[in-house]
Design a protein around this nucleic acid. Structure first.
Lengths: 366, 366
DNA sequence: TTGAAAGCGCTAACAT
DNA sequence: ATGTTAGCGCTTTCAA
């Protein structure tokens, strides 16, 4: 399976462009020879270890620079048992929410000399498992879960390998691990209360149960807001989304509920679902927000577009991605599973009022 | 800099959760011993080499399976000089166009046992160089450029390392390399001709020059359509975008041109720019499409949303990403720079007519 | 068809 | 403060 045509020997392969054979790799040995020291010493200065004479350090550094030598990270990984590669597990990188988090992570990672591998699982546990196995084999340095099946064995395996990991935008009661998220309960509460304030009583919630607390918390917030307003919880108005948390799923479920129930507002568990719901409403001849008010969650970029104007709950996505890296680097440099284990970084959600909820319609402002 | 607390020795680190010390890694040696063969033989069966007795092969395979042994890809990389990791260089993964291509690539890659690292360069050559150096050090197996500065030295370096690469959605006259793209000239032509058919004469083009032919080709298409219609090319209507090809850039430039020129339509080099332009028009009190018609490029998901309905040129994004993997795997398995070098896979663009161009306004159909 | 041995480029004990 | 030595887990000649 491996490609034997391209061995390190660098035979003058038939297809050579300029006949450039793989020039022998510059190794630590050659640097050592030129600097008149041993490999170990070079290794020491390269790794910023103390206990090395300042003169020799400078001499080595000079040669390293002149020859533009860069240590081979693969060889290094082999002996240290670690890599400089992080993994970002996500349901689908095409969801702008994840892309934004990813970018925050990537930028921070590259600052520390790490790279990040993306894995889109589509929330399929089979794909998730395949990816995790691959990552473990590659001695991945750390993992960021933005989607996770909740499979405990997987986590067990990761812990066994002493690989640090963090959950973003999710939290599991049964599964240990750091997490960075917003207060989802609060977010769900704010969204629903806003709708109630605007006079809505029959508010549909489009959500998803599952192992992660994310959707659940948002729903709890929804329930609390109803309770506070003295509105009875109506399970017919609470729908479980089938399929991924994407546009189409929101569209489909809304098409259905539009036939079955009477309601004047929708609180969707994320923006993609909200947009899909909006689309369905329009198709069925309901105006948004005049007939049906909609509130989403995440505040992805497109929701602010003037002809959309989706009211939603904002999360500091980029910052959350960045924060993941900080946590990971902390563990990577100290105790992987030290006393700070199960740290929870919680941001405050923010209600972003736009057109879709009908706020401006009511003449409250603007 | 490296983390010495986590050496492979697996000392019972202070923060151990369940006291699980790093169990010694399962190696090829142990498989060999259990199968009563040498490491080489195990290696042979693992790599599907011929010249190994069917009986021994089965015996080895059985043990491998039973112990769930998976060879260490890092050790393998060290000796073969290759990895199973691909790189995806992009301006910004938050642009849905790239995310879609990325997903196509990722899915195909994982099928072949490859992973993909994402690098967002923001079109800054400094970041690009940093990433490339990192990737080269990691002996990346292949590179997909969805953004590239045109720096020849960088390509030179990559070629020297015999790493296959492919350009998506771009093509350089001066730089060798496979590419997969649509006929951008045709796309620009279709977009502009459509606008002309709808009666527009003063059509703004928001584009970007640069080393890649992508934007240029679209602009050439624009020019050709004007020429055919006998409309004189007006350089005041052709604007160079500053900054990345993103929403804000389109917004800013349109704000400016709205003050300076008279026009009734805009053809933007991509959807994000088109959306930004749309936003600017609305802010300045121009209705879209009644006062100003807009056509974008890429057909990213959100453009189809009913309250947007951006007319645009479709590219088979996911498929293009998938195609990149095919090209890479071809080279990886055969001559890296063989006779098929500089292959060009060209897809046909498609005009997607929606609301923003005013087609339906004119009563042509619906 | 199989095995022995060397080595990929680096780090880390243990000496000195 | 520095060098020597022994690997990390695999692949790949070369010999049998």
């Amino acid at each position: 399976m491996l490609n034997r045509e391209r061995s390190r020997k660098g035979e003058a392969g038939s297809g050579n462009l300029v006949g450039n054979r793989m020039k022998a790799r510059l190794t630590i040995k050659q640097i050592a020879k030129l600097a008149n020291v041993s490999d170990s010493t070079v290794s020491r200065v390269l790794n910023n270890q103390p206990d090395v004479n300042e003169d020799t350090r400078q001499r080595v550094l000079a040669i390293v620079k002149e020859l533009n030598y860069r240590p081979d990270p693969i060889a290094r990984s082999l002996v240290t048992g670690q890599s400089q590669t992080l993994a970002f597990l996500t349901e689908d990188i095409r969801n702008p929410f994840f892309a934004e988090v990813a970018r925050g992570l990537e930028d921070a990672a590259s600052k520390y000399g790490y790279q990040v591998i993306y894995c889109s699982t589509d929330s399929e546990s089979g794909k998730e498992k395949m990816y995790i196995e691959m990552l473990l084999a590659y001695r991945i340095a750390g993992i960021v879960f933005t989607s996770f099946s909740g499979n405990k064995e997987v986590i067990q395996e990761i812990i066994k390998c002493k690989i640090p990991y963090v959950f973003v935008n999710r939290f599991y009661n049964e599964i240990p691990g750091d997490c960075v998220l917003i207060d989802n309960y609060q977010g769900g509460y704010m969204a629903t209360r806003h709708l109630i304030k605007l006079g809505h009583r029959r508010i549909v919630h489009l959500g998803r149960s599952g192992v992660s607390c994310t959707s659940l918390d948002r729903k709890r917030g929804y329930e609390q807001a109803l309770r506070e307003a003295g509105i009875e919880y109506n399970e017919n108005l609470v729908k479980e989304i089938k399929g991924g948390l994407k546009y189409n799923s929101g569209y489909e479920i809304t098409k259905a509920i539009l036939q079955e129930e009477e309601f004047t507002a929708i609180f969707a568990v994320n923006d993609l679902i909200a947009l899909g719901a909006w689309m369905a409403c329009l198709e069925e001849g309901r105006r948004v927000p005049e007939d049906i008010a909609i509130v989403g969650f995440d505040n992805i970029d497109f929701t602010s577009f003037p002809t959309i104007g989706l009211t939603t709950i904002d999360q500091p996505k980029y910052e959350m991605g960045r924060q993941c890296m900080e946590i990971l680097i902390d563990r990577l440099r100290g105790d992987v599973y030290g006393e700070k284990y199960n740290k929870k970084i919680v941001y405050t959600p923010e209600l972003v009022i736009r057109k879709s909820c009908g706020y401006y319609l009511k003449g409250y402002s603007l």
